[in-house]
Structures are given as structure tokens and as C-alpha cells.
Amino acid sequence: MKETFKDSGAAVRAAPGPPAPAALAAKVRTLAPSMTRSMQRVAEAVAGDPAGCAALTVTGLAERTGTSEATVVRTSRLLGYPGYRDLRIALAALATQQATGRAPAVTADIAVDDALPDVVAKLAQEEQQCLADTAAGLDLTQLEAAVGALAAARRIDVYGIGASNLVGQDLVQKLLRIGLIAHAHSDPHLAVTNAVQMRAGDVAIAITHSGRTTDVIEPLRVAFDRGATTIAITGRPDGGIASYADHVLTTSTARESELRPAAMSSRTSQLLVVDCLFVGVAQRTYETAAPALSASYEALAHRHSPRTPHR
């Protein structure tokens, strides 16, 4: 059995470094829903005007946002920076990137009366931004550890509901083709039943954008308690899912709107993380993965080739 040490509802892990400047806006979008209204005002200010806020002292930013110095400091720490001084440095770097055109602007929401060419352009821009934000904010130490656990796993279970389950199925299909034993579970009862059978050397992966989906948290908790290595792919690293995850891989998402719900926008970043995991595992297990891939290609090619009729 594992022993869980919790701090504000999350398991204690090696603290990641401050997010890269380019990932700051994505971090704000990810964490804003869980912030207090006063902290949201600070976060929205620094993401919306990094150059202006970088020039302000902690007192100045507190006055600009109608909050307190303590709120500014707490917001800085929640965004991943040790203090406000570190956040100001990141804001200055982000402002420089934006001035040189290396940080893309946020696109407008899709409107119900948008012409189809505009819808295509906006969706393409949002998808690109979502992928860039996820890549910039991904903790590579956590990713490396997750890849290592998967490459050595005796068995892999993946839990997800709705759109997250589709992402889980995508990962499982990839892992099966390189010879690993993997299963995707969408039924919460079956997921828990299978999680009870897990042990050290197994890996359980939970995919949930909100980080609070009970039907995903529960099987991960059971697998964690049974000694399996646990991985969470989530847009809310402060959610309850982190309490039972050895490794947390954070995803970004485009702004949620009426015509673009969170389940739709989160899928893009989840698929990127899934692909990173798969390629990393395939690299680590190349001697066995390459022949397994070749065999699956040949089997599929044979299945779809014209057959000689039986006589």
C-alpha cells in the first residue's frame, strides 16, 4: 500500500519549475475557474497586459486590480512562481515575445453568425494555440517518469468518461500495437473492479479535464492504494485527481464558449499528451515495439487485400 501525503488536496510531488513565459496565459485559463474572484482579477490583468503589469510593483498591481498585496502574492504562487518578483520577470519576457510577434494573439470566440471560412480560421488558430500552450506547460520530468513507468508496465489500465474516454481508447490502441497489455474503461463499476486487481508494476492512467470526475478519480484511487503507478492527464492539476496521481501531466484548453465546450477543446491537448507518451514508450521499447508495429501493419494489409475465393 502507498502512503499519501496531502497538501491542499494534492499529493506532494517534486515541485515543477515556474512555467515558461509563453505558458502563462494558458496557466491563467486553466486555473482561473478554481480561483477566488479577487485572484481572477489579478490573473486576468497579468495575462491581458503583461507589459503594463511587469512595470508595476506588488502594491501597484494590487491597486490596479482592486485587491491586496497578499492576493497578488497568492496568485503568483498559484500560477507557479515562487513570488511576485518571479512573475514580473516572466511578464517582461512574455511582453518581449509579444512585441516581436513570437507570442500569438488570442483569437475571438466563434459566433453563431460567423461565416464558415471564419470558423475554420478561428478553430485552426485555437487548436494551434492550445497545442503550443500544452507543450510549453508540460512538465518534462513528470512526462519522462510516466514514460518510464509505461515502458516497464506489466499491465496498463486507462480511465475516462465521455470525450476523455475516446482519448483513452486512442492511447490503448497505440499501446496494443507495440505489444503492451492495455485496457480502456468507460464503465465506472468495471473500472473499479479492474483497479482492485492492480498491483506494483502496473500503471493506471486517469484522463479528466476537470480533475474532479468522481467516476475517474475512484478507480485511480483504488489502483493507487493497490500499489500501481498512477498518472493523471488533466487540465486542473489542483483538482481531486492529483491526490492519487504519482505523475500529473497538465493540459491546456482553448477558451470555452457556447459553440466550443470544454470537452471539445480539451481533447486536442489530451491527444498531444497521449501521443507524447506513446512515442516515448515506443522509443524506450524499440527492440520489441518495432517488430510489433510491423506485424500489425502486415496483418491489417493482409486483411484488406483481395482474397482468393475458396474452392
Rank of each mutant, 00 (worst) to 15 (best):
197 Q>C: 08
306 P>H: 05
167 V>T: 15
264 M>C: 14
212 R>Q: 15
192 V>S: 02
4 T>N: 10
188 P>W: 02
158 V>E: 00
240 G>M: 03
76 S>T: 11
8 S>C: 03
138 L>Y: 07
50 P>K: 05
133 D>Q: 14
110 I>R: 00
311 R>L: 13
41 R>F: 10
64 R>F: 01
223 A>D: 04
61 L>Y: 02
311 R>C: 07
153 A>V: 06
211 G>Y: 06
278 F>S: 01
130 C>L: 04
121 A>V: 11
290 A>M: 09
65 T>M: 03
29 R>M: 13
198 M>F: 05
85 R>V: 15
225 D>F: 09
49 D>I: 02
238 D>W: 06
6 K>V: 10
34 S>A: 08
5 F>C: 05
4 T>G: 06
62 A>F: 06
193 T>M: 14
193 T>I: 12
228 A>R: 04
176 L>G: 07
113 D>H: 15
30 T>V: 12
217 I>Y: 01
157 D>N: 09
66 G>I: 02
130 C>Q: 09
106 V>F: 05
64 R>L: 09
174 K>R: 14
245 A>R: 07
212 R>D: 13
300 L>M: 10
229 T>H: 12
201 G>D: 07
46 V>N: 01
128 Q>A: 15
138 L>N: 05
211 G>H: 06
41 R>G: 03
159 Y>M: 04
206 A>W: 06
285 T>S: 10
2 K>T: 14
15 A>Q: 09
18 P>R: 03
